[in-house]
Design a protein around this nucleic acid. Structure first.
Lengths: 231, 231
DNA sequence: TTGTGTGAATCGATTCACAGCC
DNA sequence: GGCTGTGAATCGATTCACACAA
């Protein structure tokens, strides 16, 4: 059977791990490794080998039993699956430090994504050259009628919804929102929200839990201990 | 029964949503809303009301049947649960645009987190004043013996593991890694990895799937094909 | 009557364990 | 013999639906 391109729906959880596999494969490729087992690749990607194999089996069979996977072939297959063999025009709206960080970030500028426009409200920023592009206003960009696939919002929360509306109006169907607020978009448009503070708060939760556990272990006045210390 | 602080293990999925609830509650609080139903809060946080109620029930019962939740009381409870009523000293390592963005980000500087140190390798950056702090080298910080709870890595991938090792050596037990690579840490240390490019790649996957679906609808030329073309 | 809190049911994702192929 | 691919089992998370409290 000739390789099917996408054998039905790939689960979201799997899609979320594919970028990690791709990164790990890239590292092995750079080191000249051409073949790899699910065990090795899973270790490098931080998952279990059974998980990796099940994930990859969703894209079709690209491994060889008793041998492993071909690094180049698997990279190509995952790239294709993720849509990274195409060229997605991206606009970044909001050129504070975060917007500038993303404008210069390799993971953004390479691998299928091409940043074709930068926009900001601030008069003092518009016209500036950043990463080889001239910063424009969003209205200017909308008026130009340029085709954009993905919009990245790195504005303050107050501006995010208005920016999202304008992006949608100009035909953007994928939005990556870094502003610390929810934005709503019409049916058929995809939004992903990344809140940097959320991750920190999750860490704080675990840190506190550990601190509480330690407390129980270190200063328990009573002799008999109910729980043994973890470390 | 008087409010228990943490009635056993809260599921990870729930913990991951608590920051979202807290943000939404903050918005309602600012607007002077004092009481809220699970329906309203769930809408504002982008989840279903049943999910919200189940999540909140994990922290104990803080709602009133037939009425709803008290905005202030629930905020306080979630903050306490997440450990945001304490003060966590944070260091940011790597002062490129991303590091600077985080150093000035409200979600980082408020809400229980206090950025107490900034570190970088680059000679030309060390000594600079950023957000009221003097940038130091990491070795300098390690030598100072200051107590740090959370380390944020915003260096290039090449430096990330070495930075993580130093952070662990100085007693940091929670690490937030923005570098596009996995870092490994000893048992008992918590690492969270945020890869900004991953989110973009997930968007690209959905964008491509939508493009393919459109294609099938708009132009289905041949009646039966052996392999359907992708690109 | 309203809306929380929660057991029961459902759904999905992970892990196990081994058949099948190199 | 070694490693993939995958059904079966397990585990967890979401949703349903309603008893119960105000």
């Amino acid at each position: 059977m000739i390789s099917e391109p996408a054998p039905r729906g790939v689960p979201e959880a799997t899609v979320g791990r594919l970028p990690g596999y791709l990164r790990a494969l890239g590292q092995f490729g750079e080191r000249g490794v051409t073949s790899i087992s699910s065990e090795e690749l899973a270790d490098a990607a931080g998952v279990r080998s059974a998980q990796l194999r099940k994930d990859l089996s969703r894209l079709g069979s690209y491994g060889v039993r008793g041998v492993g996977y071909d690094v180049g072939q698997l990279s190509a297959q995952i790239s294709r699956e993720l849509g990274l063999t195409q060229d997605w025009p991206v606009v970044i709206v909001g050129l504070g430090h975060l917007g500038r960080a993303l404008a210069g970030y390799r993971g953004f500028t390479s691998r299928g994504f091409r940043i074709v426009a930068l926009a900001d409200q601030d008069e003092s920023v518009v016209g500036e050259q950043v990463e080889g592009l001239t910063v424009r206003t969003l209205s200017d960009l909308v008026a130009s009628g340029e085709s954009i696939a993905i919009g990245v919002i790195t504005t303050p929360a107050e501006a995010a919804q208005a920016v999202a509306d304008e992006l949608v109006a100009m035909g953007v169907r994928s939005v990556l929102n870094f502003a610390p607020c929810l934005v709503t978009v019409p049916e058929g448009v995809d939004v992903r929200h990344v809140d940097l503070a959320t991750e920190l708060q999750i860490l704080a939760f675990h840190e506190q839990r550990r601190a509480l556990a330690d407390q129980v272990v270190t200063d328990t006045p009573a002799p008999a201990r109910t729980t043994e210390g973890v470390g």
